[in-house]
Write a protein that binds this DNA or RNA. Structure first.
Length: 918
RNA sequence: GCGGUUGUGGCGUAAUUGGUAGCCGCGCCAGACUUAGGAUCUGGUGCCGAAAGGCGUGGGGGUUCGAGUCCCUUCAGCCGCACCA
């Protein structure tokens, strides 16, 4: 029989579906294992060959774990809300729900062809009301909680109100937007509206005026991780800063726990480092300065408290509230001018053009230790959003302060013994302090500690930890997202009751803002509560739906809760999570935050959602080029191109094979090339190539459907794994796929001789057993270590060796099929049944290797002289060191290489190597 | 600038963790079967050299009997962060 992959794959995919092989239920008798892929956003372009890489890897692991006796949860769903479908809707009028549904169908079809073991009964779509019910529910919980810094835990708002009623803000240690201070009686005298406004300052989901990234082209605000270098990541449209009243999530409250949690999880160092970076913890001191002639004081944050004696000026961010206070009438015009100028510059311009700019405020600060007067300046090199928006400038030891001081001719006082600050600042954190009063003679490290102690004791400052992590802005002025379950009464936000969920996305006539500039939901008819209060018109951002989806998979049909305690306690958290690095600072921070919040509420039993995480590398494209001779329609083959002046042109890789261009296809590709002429080499047109991103514009996109059609899903799966280490980026080159396909056919031919099934029941030989058990050992090790490329190579070696041995014994081939089943499920299932089994191969057990079969009688020693290997020596495995040495020294070859000299030293590593030094 | 990560044949890669560098494939070369080959099978294939032999894991240095692997130094690519005080 021929290996007919089309028929085999169709047959077993249907069988698995009909017999519900992948249906998963909680089974207390088996250990659980949860394998999750980062679910895709179903784009209109469909999957290319790079997308399934991680899915294949996780599928192999899932099937392996199952064969090892685990109850494996391996679900899949779709991150279905998002901008592209909405942009498409604006352009074409097609409802994003329809676009999304079609795209999902396409994705599903493509995924099905590859033969994954997903339990599709658990499929979730974030745009499904039954799903976003629980996204909205979580938001409501966040609204009704605040973060207690003492307990390091979310607490009900009712507890906060109690505190206010008893003590006002006294002894309150809660995360907040602004530091507030009021008494219990102040609180009681406030109106309902005032109280609500105060509470927003503490809620974990809160409404506040914040500086946002406004993207005019998309008509919405974007989160920090959705913006890069001043443009939106989706679409690349310019983004500007604006102050707007927005929903935010108090992620910053969890900064320390997000940081600490990294120690407990098995992620790569680079990813943890990226998150640490993003959280940006810095330990320092907050020091208070008074303003000469005024009662107001202000604080600055510094990590270099040791440099306090080197402060020669202060700098305020232009947006700082202190600017008003510090500006003297004499300087008012100058300051006004400067503020106007900075306002006109966008964030991008400020970053691109690092000119030193600033203006003197007219006021002086009083140095808290020396009592000296220090001029207060205003400059946009100080960021309003970090620390207190004001700094103490130490030009001798900070390059930014140095540049500023040089430009405005301000004094520079060196503080480190022997440092030279005539040309640049000395930023290094090493040396002995000078010019620093009581700090003189201390090392920097000692001086930092001494200063902290001093300012704390004298009450002029305190030790402070700052985080770069900002609260997440949660409003999007868009249509295609989860409605926020909020209504407004008296201008203040209130949540809908849980019974009113899900708040379904309403129909609108157009997916555009209203004439008044309100978001699209403002177009909806009757967008108000039954009592007539207006509902929130913003929707949630893209990361909302993906923040807790891994929990929903545990219990996807539950209409009473996000996840039942029973399901959650069984599945706990994700054991293995696979996905790309692009989510390092977005999804992977937000979902950890979301999970920790639910953990505080006792909804989930694990503090961290993803125990182990692997980032699969990107599959790059391999582009092909033709070379057109300038101003002609003639194309010259690669090796001849240097004889002409040519322009390289991308050609579709699908009409190139082994870098040889199909001329006929090329001519028909584009009318422009209809009459193209070619200068060939050896009768062929050879294309040039380059490794680039896989994208439509490079014409290097390879569709998995085509590969499945031509080679089968098993070949695709094996080849994707064979390309190289999972985590590494590597180019896709369809040319190499034949090798893997040949391997599968060779495996097939172990079973079939001249189209006849030929499998023997005979007992295997020692040699055959050795081949099998060597392979079992290697495959087990490789799967555990996600080294799938070497596993595929081990399979090839195994089949090559069995082929040489002409082995067709069932006792060898059957375990081999079980080993291979996670990688190539279809052919394994087919041949497993061919051997007479009636149950699926995935109900078998993974073979165990037996060291007994791997024992060798003899070992080949490489014999080297002064480190150079000259020949090998076969010795019995159990030969003693002395025997080996004796045999080696008396070997005729040894005499030749010794050139009559006496050995100085003989190194023998049993079973490994012999080295003779002379 | 800071941090992470990777440098091995023409290409993708491997190396039991300090012990024969180049496994497994692609490509290429030769041969077989073929009307044919972008099919299949067999053999060869790191570089230089006719061979003996020499050289060889980005470069330089070191430790060691022995280094792709450890240490120092340097270069290059990729990724992340970046006026974060």
């Amino acid at each position: 029989m021929e290996y007919n992959f089309r028929e085999i794959e169709r047959k077993w995919q249907a069988y698995w579906k009909d017999h519900q092989i992948y249906k998963t239920i909680e089974d207390p008798n088996k250990p659980k294992y949860y394998v999750l892929d980062m679910f895709p956003y179903p784009s209109g372009a469909g999957l290319h060959v790079g997308h399934p890489l991680g899915y294949i890897a996780s599928d192999i692991y899932s099937r392996y774990k199952r064969l090892k006796g685990f109850n494996v949860l391996h679900p899949m769903g779709f991150d279905a809300f998002g901008l592209p479908a909405e942009q498409y809707a604006i352009q074409t009028g097609q409802h994003p729900a329809i676009t999304t549904k079609n795209n999902i169908a396409r994705y599903r079809d493509q995924l099905d062809k590859i033969g994954f073991s997903y339990d599709w009964d658990r499929e979730i779509r974030t745009c499904d009301p039954d799903y976003y019910h629980w996204t909205q529910w979580a938001f409501i919980q966040m609204f009704h909680h605040y973060y207690d810094n003492d307990l390091q835990k979310a607490q009900p708002i009712s507890r906060l109100i109690e505190h206010f009623e008893k003590k006002g803000t006294e002894n309150l240690h809660a995360s907040s937007t602004h530091e507030l201070s009021f008494t219990a009686s102040d609180w009681k005298e406030m109106s309902e509206k005032q109280q609500q406004e105060i509470l927003l300052n503490y809620r974990i989901a809160y409404l506040a005026d914040t500086k946002v990234n406004w993207c005019p082209a998309l008509g919405t605000v974007l989160a920090n991780d959705e913006v890069s270098e001043g443009v939106s990541i989706r679409g690349g449209y310019p983004v500007e800063q604006r102050i707007m009243r927005q929903w935010c999530l108090r992620v910053s409250a969890y900064a320390q726990r997000l940081l600490d949690g990294l120690e407990t999880i098995d992620w790569t160092d680079s990813l943890k480092e990226t998150q640490r970076n993003w959280i940006g913890r810095s330990e320092g001191a907050e020091i208070r300065f008074s303003i000469k002639g005024r009662k107001e004081t202000f604080e600055v944050f510094t990590t270099r408290a040791d440099t306090i004696f080197g402060v020669t000026f202060m700098v305020l961010a232009p947006e700082s509230e202190l600017v008003k206070i510090c500006t003297t009438p004499e300087q008012a015009i100058e300051v006004e001018k400067y503020l106007d100028n900075t306002k006109k510059r966008t964030e991008r311009e400020r970053l691109a053009d690092r000119r030193v700019t600033g203006v003197f405020s007219g006021s002086y600060a009083i140095h808290p230790i020396t009592g000296e007067e220090i001029p207060i300046w205003i400059s946009d090199y100080v960021l309003a959003g970090y620390g207190t928006g004001a700094i103490m400038a130490v030009p001798a030891h900070d390059s930014r302060d140095y540049a500023f001081a040089k430009h405005f001719n301000l004094p520079i006082i060196p503080l480190i013994q022997g440092c030279d600050v005539s040309e640049e600042s000395f930023d290094a954190k090493e040396g002995i302090m000078i010019n620093s009063g009581f700090l003189n003679g201390l090392t920097i490290k000692e001086a930092i500690e001494a200063t902290k102690k001093y300012i704390t004791e004298k009450g002029i400052g305190r030790v402070k930890i700052n985080y770069r992590l900002r609260d997440a802005i949660f409003s999007r002025q868009r249509y295609w997202g989860e409605p926020i379950p909020i209504y407004y009464k008296n201008g203040m936000p209130y949540t809908l009751s849980e019974e009113e969920l899900p708040l379904e996305l309403p129909e609108v006539d157009k997916f555009l803002p209203t004439e008044k500039g309100e978001p699209p939901l403002a177009r909806a008819k009757n967008w108000k509560t039954k009592d007539g209060y207006p509902l929130e018109v913003c929707t949630m951002p893209g990361f909302a739906g993906s923040s807790a989806y891994y929990l929903r998979f545990m219990d996807p049909k539950n209409d009473k809760a996000l996840v039942s305690p029973e399901a959650n306690q069984y599945w706990r958290n994700v054991d293995l999570y696979l996905g790309g690095t692009e989510h390092a600072t977005g999804h992977l921070i937000y979902s950890r935050f979301w999970n920790k919040f639910l953990f505080d509420l006792g909804i989930v039993c694990e503090d961290e959602p993803f125990k182990k995480l692997i980032n699969q590398g990107m599959i790059q494209g391999r582009s092909n080029f033709v070379y057109r001779i300038k101003d002609t329609n003639t194309f010259v083959s690669y090796h001849l191109k240097d004889q002409y002046e040519t322009t390289p042109i991308h050609v579709d890789v699908n009409m190139v094979s082994n870098d040889i261009l199909d001329l006929e296809k090329f001519r028909n590709w584009n009318p422009e090339y209809k009459n193209a002429e070619f200068i060939l080499e050896d009768g062929k047109y050879i294309c040039g190539w380059a490794i680039e991103k896989m994208s439509k514009s490079m014409f290097n996109v390879v569709n998995p459907d085509d590969i499945v059609e031509n080679y089968g899903a098993d070949t695709l799966r094996l080849y994707e794994m064979f390309l190289g280490p999972l985590e590494q980026s590597k180019p896709w080159d369809t040319n190499g796929i034949d090798g893997v396909h040949r391997f599968i056919k060779k495996l097939w031919n172990l079973f079939y001789k001249n189209d006849e099934l030929s499998v023997s029941e005979e007992n295997p030989t020692a040699e055959e057993l050795k081949v099998l058990h060597k392979t079992i050992k290697k495959i087990s090790y490789d799967i555990e270590n996600f080294s799938y490329n070497t596993a595929v190579s081990a399979f090839m070696i195994c089949v090559n060796e069995l082929f040489t041995l002409k082995c067709n014994k069932k006792a060898i081939l059957e375990p081999l099929l079980i080993l291979l089943a996670p990688f190539a499920p279809h052919i394994s299932e087919e041949l497993y049944h061919t051997l007479g089994n009636s149950d699926t191969v995935f109900n078998a057990s993974f073979p165990q290797y037996d060291e007994e079969f791997l024992k060798e009688n003899t070992v080949f020693y490489p014999v080297s002289f002064n480190g150079k290997v000259r020949f090998t020596l076969e010795m019995p495995t159990d030969a003693s060191k002395e025997e080996v040495e004796k045999t080696a020294l008396s070997h005729p070859q040894t005499l030749k290489y010794m050139e009559g000299k006496t050995p100085k030293k003989i190194i023998i590593v049993p079973g490994k190597i012999i080295n003779i030094v002379f």
